[in-house]
Design a protein around this nucleic acid. Sequence first.
DNA 1: TCAGTTTATTGATTCAGATCAGAAAACGAC
DNA 2: GTCGTTTTCTGATCTGAATCAATAAACTGA
Lengths: 255, 255
Amino acid sequence: MAYTQAQANRFNSKLTSQCQNCSLAALCLPIALVDEDVNRLDQIIERKRPLKKGELLFRQGEKFDSVFAVRTGTLKTFNLTGNGEEQITGFYCPSELLGLSGIDNDIYPVSAKALETTTVCEIPFSHLEALSEQIPSLKRQLFKIMSRKICNDQDMMVLLGKKSADEKVASFLINLSDRFKRRGYSATAFRLSMSRGEIGNYLGLAVETVSRVMTRFQKNELIQVEGKEITLINIEDMQKLVGKNEECDSILKFE
Amino acid sequence: MAYTQAQANRFNSKLTSQCQNCSLAALCLPIALVDEDVNRLDQIIERKRPLKKGELLFRQGEKFDSVFAVRTGTLKTFNLTGNGEEQITGFYCPSELLGLSGIDNDIYPVSAKALETTTVCEIPFSHLEALSEQIPSLKRQLFKIMSRKICNDQDMMVLLGKKSADEKVASFLINLSDRFKRRGYSATAFRLSMSRGEIGNYLGLAVETVSRVMTRFQKNELIQVEGKEITLINIEDMQKLVGKNEECDSILKFE
DNA sequence: TCAGTTTATTGATTCAGATCAGAAAACGAC
DNA sequence: GTCGTTTTCTGATCTGAATCAATAAACTGA
């Protein structure tokens, strides 16, 4: 059931030529499918109307039926704790997949909200599952995507449990940088679509601490801050700061 | 492809009558398989020789080829950070599955070590994957297990990022209690197979803090501590302490 | 455009939990 | 059993980040 390199290339060129296929990229980029399979996959994907900033894509407790691939914009997932405050569990950039945690109970355990105008593709999970029966490499890919999510979350657990404020913020920025880079954007200059408050919430820090760390990083010429625009000036020293180790280079990997 | 309740019952009784099938329980308990499928699943599972305390089941960086179901005993998974110290990412009790995070890169991203004499069943992932092609409900179950793991890890992230030392320790004890209960053991009296140090490492706390919190809990008559033996005296107040909310009753769910 | 609101920054103070230090208990090997 | 090691407990001190407080900057919408 192996696909040839030629097929893989055909698939990749098809992907890049079809802008609306960001969602396919999210699902398949590392694997090779024949055109016919790509078309079958494309057929089950629905493009949704854009979400405005603040709109919910799905709500905690709602029935699960789809996973979503981000096409443009950014979302956050969060849940509401006992006393009503929100706890952010992740940020999702273009080409990333969200909603996987709903499979377990057929209910989304978190809500997803757009941080800016955002477009997503909806992938009904029952269709995806059915299709994965016919395309073994797709099933394998789904397992891999979920496994990667587990790895990333565990890295995040280490970050939250053991790292200092400096290390947390540095890891966060480097992680974003990696994700932008992977999508072909600048790894050194980008815009934070989330507020300092949301960063702090996600990293287990107070807003003030996030702000202080970032100004300190600026003073030490690690980064350049202009409101939400960030430029990483000295990535090497930042990476030293996060204490990333060699063999497992994946503090906070891409979803 | 739905199975009848009768079939489910047959499956369950088969499971409970066959002690060595803890591993089957780990994989399938919530789903119903016909006998034939149970047998096929049973065939791919290998029982391994027992691990002595301190022995490694697999090692960070090693090639991934199997997931494991714990039959008796307990394991921890951990990785080594840049400066050589270990970071525990999970504890695994009987009937729980570990190794799923290896699927992503075909390499285990963590090591797994026995905390006491431990027996496990090895489930070669390629066989499991092949079998899941023939048994759709098994594939669905694998997705669910991985999704549940993602949910649990996210709860853990909230715990690490936002909770106080008291809340962390209380959540940990309640989580263990739930896991023992689910397996039919006492939910109120059990033995901690991990040291205070390991609990602290896992929860992002110093050993001394774990010790202090537990003695304080004892003074407040929430628990009874006798070395590694723990009795939960007042679970209701403990649950209040962790601030668990109603709709999402899963602070630190079972893997 | 400007008032009203949210978000970000900066400083002063406080506190939960880390770290340091030492005693007591438990465990393991012989 | 006994010695040596590891684990656990308890107290005293220190510190990183939270909290409190106030200002400045950036949006928002009429």
